[in-house]
Simulated assay, not measured.
Amino acid sequence: MLTRILDWFGFGSHGHDHGGHGGHDHGGQGHDHHGPHGHTHGVIDATIATTERGIWAIKWSFVILATTAALQLAVVLFSGSVALLADTIHNIADATTAIPLWIAFVLARRRPTRTFTYGLGRVEDLAGIVIVLIILASALVAGYEAIDRLFNPQPVRFLGWLAAAGVIGF
């Protein structure tokens, strides 16, 4: 279980387990480099390495932003601060934007097929549109809440906790 968690966060084996094959026999017996352990040696396609690193960064970004937003939301609920609410909405939106990008990176790693002869690399463009819509929605919600507080003011409480949550958000 711990191995799976570490691998998910990018600290595990990264799929480099050779299934107990131990050392590689690269002797002159015509060893097939695409053989039983399923990988190649030599040049690595830069887009695959970048995408794998991108997925790793997205996972961490999502976890950190979601945790930050959850902590801020707790302070928003008892402080009544619309400023912290706006930052919390922003962090929730940022965490949420990681999801379509994550999906796009996973899909971009697929090999070309008859239907998609160049692969699915362009799905990142669609993810970009979804991300813009998420950011727009978060801005509209934050704007609505700010305008609502102008017409329905509420006292702000627990300023120390509010300041701490602002620092966490930063």
Score class of each variant (00 low, 15 high):
Leu85Lys: 02
Ala104Asp: 02
Gly35Pro: 01
Arg149Ala: 13
Phe9Asp: 03
His37Met: 07
Ala142Gly: 03
Val63Gln: 08
Arg122Cys: 01
Gly15Ala: 05
Ala142Cys: 05
His39Ser: 06
Thr117Pro: 11
Val141Met: 10
Arg122Ala: 11
Ala83Trp: 07
Ala57His: 12
Gly166Ile: 04
His41Leu: 10
Leu73Tyr: 14
Gln29Thr: 08
Ile5Thr: 09
Ile147Ala: 14
Gly27Glu: 00
Phe105Glu: 04
Ala66Trp: 00
Val82Cys: 01
Pro155Lys: 03
Phe9Ser: 08
Ala95Glu: 05
Thr96Asp: 09
Gly143Tyr: 10
Ile135Arg: 07
Ile131Cys: 11
Val132Asp: 12
Gly38Pro: 00
Lys59Leu: 07
Ala108Pro: 07
Asn152Thr: 11
Asn91Ser: 07
Ile58Glu: 14
Asp17Tyr: 01
Asp25Glu: 02
Ala74Trp: 12
Ser81Gln: 01
Gly38Trp: 01
Ile129Asp: 07
Ala49Tyr: 01
Thr117Leu: 13
Leu73Met: 15
Ile64Met: 11
Gly20Met: 03
Val130Asn: 03
Gly12Ser: 05
His39Pro: 03
Ile129Val: 15
Thr3Gln: 12
Ala74Gln: 08
Arg111Asp: 08
Ile44Met: 01
Phe9Ala: 09
Asn91Gly: 07
His21Ala: 11
Ala83Asn: 05
Ile44Val: 08
Pro112Cys: 04
Leu85Arg: 02
Ile89Leu: 14
Leu162Lys: 07
Gly35Ala: 03
Val132Asn: 13
Asp17Val: 06
Gln29Pro: 00
Ile135Cys: 05
Phe158Tyr: 12
His37Phe: 10
Glu124Met: 11
Ala70Lys: 01
Gly121Arg: 05
Asn91Thr: 08
Ala74Glu: 00
Asn152Ala: 04
Leu77Arg: 05
Glu52Met: 15
Asp25Leu: 06
Ala104Phe: 06
Gly20Asp: 08
Ala165Phe: 00
Phe11Gly: 03
Arg109Leu: 13
Arg4Met: 13
Gly10Thr: 06
